[in-house]
Design a protein around this nucleic acid. Structure first.
Lengths: 135, 135, 135, 135
DNA sequence: GTGGTCTAGACCACT
DNA sequence: GTGGTCTAGACCACC
């Protein structure tokens, strides 16, 4: 059974962390279509968070098409990966990159330092690199 | 006179957009130490926002050491000085990098694609690379 | 639950008084990491001031690393970490010392009298002397 | 002719700096009863500040009894030093000392560090130590 | 004129 | 419930 890890006290909301990690597990192949996910209550107890928070995360994942709820049975990974338009994906990446650039520039870091920090972070993340999608 | 551009209805707060753009203009050399910035009221009228919102942005920039307010005279670009500890700067860089990594991973981009997008963005920014500060 | 005392009509702004007292309680050990602080609304009602004023105080304390806010849960005392650079801390100490020197000199006190008053005040404060940080 | 030195961009208002320095020169004996001070206009031109600022400083000094204006002749140091009640002087000293203690404690300085910074500052100031007044 | 503080009240996101 | 943002409008200190 897949359980994400969340850290309270981060600037990233808990429900967002849950969404991120499940999404990442799906696109990375750790979770396959048909796999079942923990119930809202089970995950809430496991992570020691409010059930509403998990419910919100699942709702977001359902809206995006990553998971599907089957009445009375539980939550499952959906068959097909949802698609965002290439333009939309690119637009969001640009926005995210821009935000990092602004923040780091304000802190006085050089381009090299920023890129090294990113490389280090990406190197330690699982499931990246095999999921490339051509725009 | 320098005026930032803000878009209401964005997920990024208005005062944050103002801070970002002025900070960028300063580190990018578009604004130099001693340059005067628009008065709180003038910028508020220009951007069609509440003066308090601009005051908040200026207060943030003052705390970060980017600008200096002189009672009754106005707000001016300050001589750059490192206000944050090396550890704090590093902590903030990590947080910013992490956010990009999660966002981009959720969108299904590969490590390589993310790094290329960042490299492209940094390459197009003025004043980066010369501002390196040793921790 | 910790509640500061503020006096309206003082030359020191209310939000500053709140910041001062909470900061003192933290460095003096009266408030320990993890302790929860009154909610913005609760403290505002207790002190008979506007919630925004308390929010501003908490925002300041967060920036300085004394407290940490958790969306939807409340405000908590943070683990201490040095946020400011050594140079910035020194700069602020100098400014504070200078202010006392001017004020006391204007009142006609001798160097010796000022130093004795300070020694007496510092002697009566908890948690001082163990918190030394090398620059 | 006595001219104070002011630094713009400080957190201490200019008119306050002028008041401080003249007051200090009087209690320190550098200026003696009957000595004439620069005219508002002359000092404003010399310090490159607004005449209103100097006028405000002189008004404050006159209210306190340090100087006296003689219509058409100029501003002169007053005969007798003004007296504040012992209790009031002590109260103000306590408040000033307290403020430094709060600020420095928040910055994480030890008692010893604070006292050393004060001693260094006082050592460099003229006219102190001979002006002791018994409370 | 300038920035700084405070109030009152609204809406939003998160738990 | 919690904190975060924004608006509208007031008063003050300073130049």
């Amino acid at each position: 059974m897949f359980f994400p890890r969340v850290t309270t006290g981060s600037d990233r909301p808990i429900y967002r962390q849950v969404v991120d990690q499940i999404r990442l597990a799906v696109v990375g192949g750790k979770l396959r279509p048909g796999d079942s996910l923990p119930s809202v209550r089970a995950m809430a107890e496991h992570l020691l968070v409010n059930p509403n928070t998990i419910a919100k995360a699942y709702a977001e994942l359902m809206r995006e098409g990553f998971v599907q709820a089957q009445q009375g049975k539980g939550v499952f990974v959906a068959d097909r990966r949802p698609v965002l338009s290439a333009a939309e994906r690119q637009r969001r990446l640009q926005a995210a990159v821009e935000q990092l650039a602004h923040e780091a520039a304000g802190l006085g870091f050089s381009s090299k330092q920023i890129q090294e920090a990113l490389a280090k972070k990406l190197g330690g993340m699982a499931g990246m690199g095999e999921t490339e999608q051509k725009p």
